[in-house]
Simulated assay, not measured.
Amino acid sequence: MAGDRAALVGSGMALIGLASLAATRFKQQATSRLAGTRRQSAALIGTSDQLDPDAAVHAARRLNRAAGVLAASVLADSAVEHYRGQFHNNAMFTPLVTASLSLAVSAHGNADKRPLAHHARDAVYLLAAATGLVGTVFHSYNVLSKPGGLTWQNLFYSAPLGAPAALSLSGATGFLAERVRDTPPGMPPTIAGVAAGRVVGVATSVGLLGTMGEAGLLHFRGNYQNPFMYVPVSLPPFAAVALGLAALGRTGQRSRWTRALLRLTAAMGYAGAGFHLRGVARQMGGWRNWSQNILNGPPVPAPPSFTGLAMAGLAALGLLEDHPDD
């Protein structure tokens, strides 16, 4: 009996030892798999230690500034153009109000360092985007209702089709800024599950091409009498394509050529305002007849819209470089 009990005890101890060994082995394998999964996740999206917790807010503020430049351009341009139209329709006051609000909330967003989206800014940006869309419908109706309909004459001298779109771009840029800002700390910025840099880059690329089309139409009306008038229809397309390729391609790499093209486009916007000022001065009477010449000369506030879009593109590049997703 004593021998049987000793055998049973020995067998029990052996079973306990085997169970302990199996549990230890299972724990080691599980830990190894978990570590591998964490390494893979870190390689894809980065870890909280690798990501700057303030990076999303910094990118959002850059986009707020871009939205503000676009809003300022629209505010000044629509004020001049609608004053020339004598505000014969009360709706012509609307873009002045919404552009002013967009400019104000953009300044507020630029000063705001909190990593949270702001509901009031969101509401104003959405209102600005909607106002731009409605304005495009109004301007299209203005062109098509003229005798002859969609003709070069009506496109040249009726309500500019592309002008209200700049207000939509301001609203869209600001709204995207709030989505970037609303990123959990330590996580890469995403919009609708897609890397924020890709979304902002593609949207900005499309905006640059649309703005280039409007500039091309008006410069064609001016018969490209100055060689510099070719710049707004030649430089922005290269910047737009380069930015689009960067947004759709491999991320995490510095795009020096794209950055250079966007910076040149931003500078071109300010230079264009200077050229338009010169165009106003060359009208009969010059600046002594400013009240007439500003209304009939080249639109001084329009070119900086390129600057605003280029600023948004540079913010998108920063997001693509700092937060790779491949």
Results as ranks from 00 to 15, higher is better:
residue 287 W to L: 06
residue 3 G to R: 09
residue 295 L to W: 11
residue 135 G to Q: 02
residue 268 M to V: 01
residue 34 L to R: 10
residue 97 V to P: 02
residue 220 F to N: 02
residue 176 L to Y: 01
residue 171 G to T: 01
residue 205 S to K: 04
residue 71 A to M: 07
residue 163 A to L: 09
residue 174 G to P: 05
residue 174 G to H: 01
residue 69 V to D: 07
residue 93 F to C: 12
residue 18 L to G: 11
residue 97 V to T: 06
residue 263 R to M: 09
residue 131 T to M: 10
residue 60 A to V: 04
residue 209 L to P: 06
residue 154 N to F: 09
residue 147 P to H: 08
residue 261 L to Y: 08
residue 217 L to W: 05
residue 225 Q to H: 13
residue 145 S to A: 14
residue 162 G to H: 02
residue 28 Q to W: 15
residue 256 R to N: 07
residue 286 G to T: 08
residue 288 R to G: 12
residue 315 A to M: 02
residue 1 M to K: 07
residue 322 D to R: 14
residue 119 H to R: 15
residue 164 P to Y: 10
residue 116 L to V: 13
residue 24 T to Q: 14
residue 49 D to H: 12
residue 222 G to K: 07
residue 121 R to W: 14
residue 322 D to V: 12
residue 251 T to S: 02
residue 209 L to M: 00
residue 44 L to M: 04
residue 108 H to N: 15
residue 254 R to H: 01
residue 183 T to A: 03
residue 98 T to N: 06
residue 221 R to I: 05
residue 324 P to W: 10
residue 290 W to I: 11
residue 116 L to S: 15
residue 37 T to A: 15
residue 23 A to N: 15
residue 212 M to K: 10
residue 298 P to C: 08
residue 320 L to R: 01
residue 11 S to Q: 14
residue 155 L to P: 05
residue 281 A to E: 04
residue 236 P to E: 09
residue 285 G to Q: 10
residue 171 G to I: 00
residue 159 A to E: 04
residue 132 G to P: 08
residue 121 R to P: 04
residue 8 L to R: 02
residue 177 A to C: 07
residue 240 A to N: 00
residue 48 S to P: 10
residue 197 G to R: 07
residue 23 A to I: 15
residue 81 E to F: 03
residue 97 V to Q: 07
residue 169 L to S: 06
residue 17 G to T: 13
residue 42 A to M: 00
residue 316 A to M: 08
residue 90 N to F: 09
residue 144 L to W: 02
residue 47 T to D: 08
residue 109 G to M: 14
residue 77 D to R: 08
residue 78 S to C: 03
residue 61 R to Q: 11
residue 296 N to C: 01
residue 226 N to M: 07
residue 107 A to W: 09
residue 59 A to N: 09
residue 154 N to R: 12
residue 97 V to W: 01
residue 151 T to Y: 14
residue 19 A to Y: 01
residue 288 R to D: 14
residue 167 L to I: 06
residue 122 D to Y: 14
residue 145 S to C: 12
residue 86 Q to H: 13
residue 72 A to C: 09
residue 121 R to L: 15
residue 216 G to L: 00
residue 125 Y to M: 14
residue 180 V to W: 05
residue 136 T to P: 08
residue 290 W to L: 02
residue 239 A to G: 11
residue 203 A to G: 03
residue 112 D to V: 10
residue 235 L to P: 12
residue 1 M to N: 12
residue 62 R to N: 13
residue 221 R to F: 03
residue 276 H to V: 03
residue 281 A to M: 09
residue 79 A to F: 07
residue 187 M to D: 11
